[in-house]
Structures are given as structure tokens and as C-alpha cells.
Simulated scan of single mutants.
Amino acid sequence: MFRIRTTLAAVAVATVAAIAVAAPASAHDTIVSSTPAADSQLTTAPTEVVLTFSNNLISLDENSGTAMTVADESGEDWVAGEPTITADSVTVPLAEGMPNGAYTVTWQVVSSDGHPTSGEYSFSLAAPEAPAEPSATATESVAPDQSAEPSQTAESAEPAETASWPLLIGLGAVLLVAIVVFIVILVRRRR
């Protein structure tokens, strides 16, 4: 009986320690919205990229760990200035003259827990070519701005990525409980 209690106490301590170590890893801030939104197809070139996170970001004076690039298919970076952090958002201005094509936004910030976190997403630009002569039908055929609808895609895509941490922790806890039950059954059978 003493061995069973000792074993159960040791397993309980190990479980608490595993959960305590895993909890900070899942505490990193995540993107809740982005402009332009992930996987959006724009008809006009954006003037800036704004990422909004689940918590306020840490902003240090120099070498803060906050960085962002907006690269086209050839690898050219279109960021035209330093990132600006305001509470839970980071913004970078973009250069004019962005050509049509796919763009990859790569970012790194310092989470509210003090740890760096990073990621990337893509959007594309398909601006209509300027017609030789302006006409009323050309302005009517321009697609509406799609930033509102695709931002829901960015909101749902990021949390799914971060939702895997609690799932893994839960599965680990269930596995640990199963191992404890197995050990208890073995110990009882030997008696």
C-alpha cells in the first residue's frame, strides 16, 4: 500500500510539473486580425500592413525584436519604414509601386510574456491595368475592397494553430493518467 501511495504521489508531482512547464509555451500572443488579411486578393496596393495580436506587445527602445518584411515573388522587400507598436498592434508602411503578384508577410514580435514569437502569411495583388481612356464602365467593374471578409479567415486560421497546444497538453495528461492506472493495476496483481 505504501508503494502505491508513493507511486501515485510521484505521478501527481510529475503531472503538475509537466503542466506548469507546458503552460508558458501556450501563452504566446497570437494574431487575431491582419490588414491586408491572410489569403486576400487585393485590387489596389496596400499602403501599410497592420497586425493585431491577442495581447499588448512589448516594445523596447532598440533591437526590440520586432521586425516585419513584405516580400514579393522575386524576394524584394516592400517595407518602407520601421515597425510601430501601439498596444496590441504593429504597423509597417509600404513603398509605392508594388507590382501585381503574391506577397509574403513575415513577422516577429515580443509577446506580452517576454518571449519572441513569429509567423508569416500571404496575400496577392491583382490591380487592374490603367485603361488608355477612362470610362464609366471601367470604374464600375473594379472589385470592392475585400479586406473585411478575408480578415475573418486570418482570425480563424491563427487560433486553430494555437489551439493545438492545449490539445497536446490534454492528450499528454490523459496518457500520463493511463500510465498511472496501468502501474497501479500491475502492482495490485503482483500482490
Rank of each mutant, 00 (worst) to 15 (best):
A71P: 01
T52W: 03
V181P: 01
T66F: 01
P128S: 00
N55I: 01
S112K: 04
T139V: 09
E82Q: 13
V16N: 06
G97K: 04
V110E: 09
L57T: 03
V142D: 05
S111G: 15
S141G: 04
V181C: 07
P166E: 01
S141C: 01
S54V: 12
T91H: 04
M1H: 14
I31F: 01
V92N: 07
H28A: 11
I183S: 10
L125H: 02
F53T: 06
S33H: 06
A87T: 13
Y121Q: 02
T30F: 08
A160Y: 09
Q152H: 10
P93L: 02
T69K: 08
S164N: 08
Y121H: 13
E76P: 02
I185P: 00
F123D: 00
V16Y: 02
L94T: 00
V110C: 07
A163D: 14
V110I: 12
I183E: 10
A10W: 12
V109N: 05
D72G: 10
V180E: 13
W78K: 06
L60C: 02
V105F: 02
P46W: 00
D145T: 10
T91Y: 09
P83Q: 05
G75R: 03
W107C: 01
A178Y: 12
I58K: 11
E96Q: 15
D88V: 00
P24K: 12
G65M: 09
A157H: 08
Y121F: 13
V110W: 03
A102Q: 13
A38D: 10
T69F: 00
